[in-house]
Design a protein around this nucleic acid. Structure first.
Lengths: 226, 226
DNA sequence: CGACTGCTTGATGTTGCTCAACGTGCGTGG
DNA sequence: CCACGCACGTTGAGCAACATCAAGCAGTCG
């Protein structure tokens, strides 16, 4: 693996933008860029967490293996740090990350990362900002899920893909029904039923994984009312 | 309010322990210690978040007002920073914090806090550590709740009070059944039923709010199996 | 005493999971 | 080439878990 040239990278995180030439150089020397295909495991749950993972491009699912079924925590698109809390809160990864599309990840040595936090307050602050925003969002996700019924959760997931991932009312789902179910915290059967229901009610046009939102307003209402 | 003398404080957070004399002095000048009675609101949801709240002593519930019912996110005992992500991730508080016991809180000017992050890498790193551990724990809470049924959630709550808050198998609940229900994400009726069930099965001795765990092993099994 | 809060218990209806069956498309091996 | 297994998706029937509704009791405060 060649040393990465972080100075020339045009996909720097908001934190990395605060680094000076020398710091970027140090970052580059302790950083490895890696490419992943859909289905490839980027971070493995329960493995030792020795690197910070920065998602430079692509789409990733963060998930956790329960005793029986996988629970998908969230789907993250670039740019983003993956699972920072696992890097600092513990020495092992609490979650797995798996690529959903072709994906590029920079693995940064965790000690280098710590050093940057210690030495550059701007950098540290950006990381704190990032973690804060993330946590707030995670929280609201959790809460929403906790007090919504299935139909509202599925509506949430669809709106998430439309608004956050694809910025379009027509898109092709990058995941199976089973994964949508794991994301919404329901069974694949329930998920399937709700998709057909949305299709019948002219809220969505469903064609396998190809989705078109026909009645966004109603979908939003369903998402909000639970 | 007198200027607080942080140098002499023997309840410093792990982050504040990394500060030098001058920094502690600055902290003291921008910090106000306040006392709260049970039921008093410490942080109000949707209000402007201008201060970092450090819980110096006491017990607090962090909660969020839904459309109909309150959801309790968690119960936190001192020492801890309250809702840091709200301070940095957004300008308004996403949660409320209410005292459950007599409680002491230091309100720290958020700009002072930022300054400390910028200027003292040790401090910043401790904050990141703290936030990371918190987030991991929150996550596991959320997940557990999401895939457990009611009886497991109630078992969780009881074990939480016994192990984390009181370190004893006999204790007096600082909250109503309604609040336990809000914490477990269930109705107060279900909560009540499960308490009597535990009492009948000799798992707990329930006497109003006075709880004694009789069969911790079984309670643990119920908590784990869901 | 009446109003109120907190708690408990029973009856009833709904939601969503489980189980089961079946269709489809795809890749593999005989 | 066909047979087969396998992953994915859909649909129906039955059941268990919970929420909701309703009623009642004890303790407390004005």
């Amino acid at each position: 693996m060649n040393p990465t040239i972080c100075q020339l990278c045009n996909l720097k995180s908001s934190a990395a933008q605060k680094l000076n030439e020398a710091e970027l150089c140090m970052l580059g020397e302790n950083c490895a860029e890696t490419h992943f295909q859909p289905g490839d495991i980027i971070i493995k749950q329960d493995a030792h967490s020795t690197n910070v993972a920065y998602l430079k491009s692509g789409l990733v699912k963060i998930h956790i293996e329960g005793s029986i079924k996988d629970k998908i925590i969230k789907i993250t698109k670039a740019p983003a740090y993956l699972c920072l809390p696992s890097n600092f809160g513990d020495k092992i990864n609490h979650f797995s990350a798996t690529a959903l599309e072709q994906t590029t990840v920079c693995f940064i040595n965790v000690n280098t990362f710590k050093k940057l936090i210690y030495e550059n307050g701007d950098f540290a602050y950006q990381i704190i900002l990032d973690m804060s925003k993330n946590e707030l969002q995670n929280f609201h996700n959790c809460l929403n899920n906790a007090q919504k019924q299935n139909i509202g959760r599925v509506a949430d997931v669809i709106l998430f893909f439309a608004n956050t991932i694809y910025n379009s009312n027509t898109f092709r789902l990058p995941v199976t029904r089973e994964e949508i179910a794991a994301l919404a915290g329901i069974t694949r059967e329930s998920c399937s039923r709700i998709f057909t229901e949305f299709n019948n009610d002219k809220i969505l046009e469903v064609n396998g994984r190809q989705i078109t939102i026909l009645n966004e307003k109603l979908l939003r209402q369903i998402s909000e009312k639970g």
